[in-house]
């Protein structure tokens, strides 16, 4: 990998100019891909219920903002989220598990956490990889652990968080992407970060991972999905990430079963921009309901 080359490539996405109908379509598409997230020590069943309400009905239905893809919560909150969303909904319940965000717990504990979350009604599990094992060259250990989590997931979709900021280099990110992709199933995700470190999803990291997904797909025919998480707060950023997908992976990845945004503040900015496209004017922030703090 050549860092300068990657950054030059992604800079070109930023020069794309998205206007009018294309902008509106892009904004709605992005909204449908949001994993509305709250991952705080102070989360309560009430707060999670409010998040779920926001997920089901992000804004005035007249505006036509789609429901988000999922809500993402800690395992202890899964049953509350399940209850708030009900069983008859397209919005999925995602839960971080495996001793998120550090992953520093015995494998047995981590697997038990995954199973508990699935039993409580989680449709999707966001796991963290064993960065320690990866960085010390024990790729087999890291890969075996992911394989074990795949089994523990059962029917649930798995998202493998690489925690890119701890992997340091683009080469490591690509290598870790491949190690993960070889043991997860078609439709499972690789994900940039936990959102708990200083540097989260960037266009560069996103590019390295979606190129890995592309190369893996062209070689094996297996489509892996992608989720950048953390740090994507504005509609403009989200559109730029979508352009990266459009030009690297193509149309088949432009939907919420292949691409997600792990974010919370992003949703309101998307709605604000959609409202602006409709009315021609920006509305004051207090017109948009808050459900979480920024992530």
């Amino acid at each position: 990998m050549d860092a300068i080359g990657i950054e030059e490539r992604v800079a070109k996405y930023g020069t794309r100019s998205i206007k009018k109908a294309a902008k509106l379509r892009g904004l709605k598409l992005a909204a449908s891909m949001v994993d509305l997230t709250t991952l705080e020590g102070k989360d309560t069943p009430g707060k999670v219920a409010s998040l779920c309400q926001k997920a089901l009905c992000p804004h005035d239905p007249e505006l036509g903002v789609p429901q988000v893809a999922a809500v993402c919560v800690y395992p202890a909150m899964v049953k509350h989220a399940r209850k708030a969303l009900g069983s008859d909904t397209v919005v999925r319940v995602a839960s971080v598990a495996t001793a998120f965000p550090s992953g520093q717990a015995p494998l047995k504990t981590r697997l038990a956490e995954v199973k508990a979350a699935v039993a409580d009604g989680a449709d999707e599990i966001d796991m963290v990889i064993n960065r320690g094992a990866f960085l010390s060259g024990e790729f087999g250990v890291m890969q075996d652990e992911i394989r074990a989590v795949v089994e523990a997931c059962g029917q649930a979709t798995l998202k493998v968080i690489l925690e890119v900021s701890e992997l340091e280099t683009y080469d490591n990110i690509r290598a870790a992407s491949f190690l993960a992709m070889r043991v997860i199933r078609e439709g499972d995700f690789i994900k940039t970060s936990t959102g708990k470190t200083s540097l989260n999803a960037t266009l560069g990291n996103n590019q390295v991972m979606i190129e890995a997904i592309r190369d893996y797909y062209l070689d094996t025919g297996i489509s892996i999905a992608m989720k950048p998480a953390g740090g994507i707060r504005t509609a403009k950023q989200a559109l730029t990430f979508l352009i990266a997908i459009k030009e690297t992976l193509g149309d088949a990845w432009l939907n919420h079963s292949r691409y997600r945004f792990g974010a919370s503040a992003l949703l309101n900015d998307l709605i604000r921009q959609i409202e602006k496209e409709k009315t021609g004017a920006y509305q004051a922030p207090y017109y948009f309901s808050e459900a979480t703090e920024s992530y």
């Binding site: 794309r16 100019s17 998205i18 206007k19 009018k20 109908a21 294309a22 902008k23 379509r25 892009g26 598409l29 491949f178 592309r214 893996y216 797909y217 062209l218 070689d219 094996t220 025919g221 979508l242 459009k246 030009e247 992976l249 193509g250 149309d251 088949a252 432009l254």
Partner: peptide, 26 residues
């Protein structure tokens, strides 16, 4: 990388660059 597609003789996977999200003139 296992070259599954090459071995199994299935058509090689292709990416679709269509007009699902077409840009407006700018």
């Amino acid at each position: 990388l296992p070259r599954v597609s090459a071995r199994s003789g299935r058509p090689a996977p292709e990416l679709i660059f269509g007009d699902l999200w077409e840009f407006d003139p700018s």
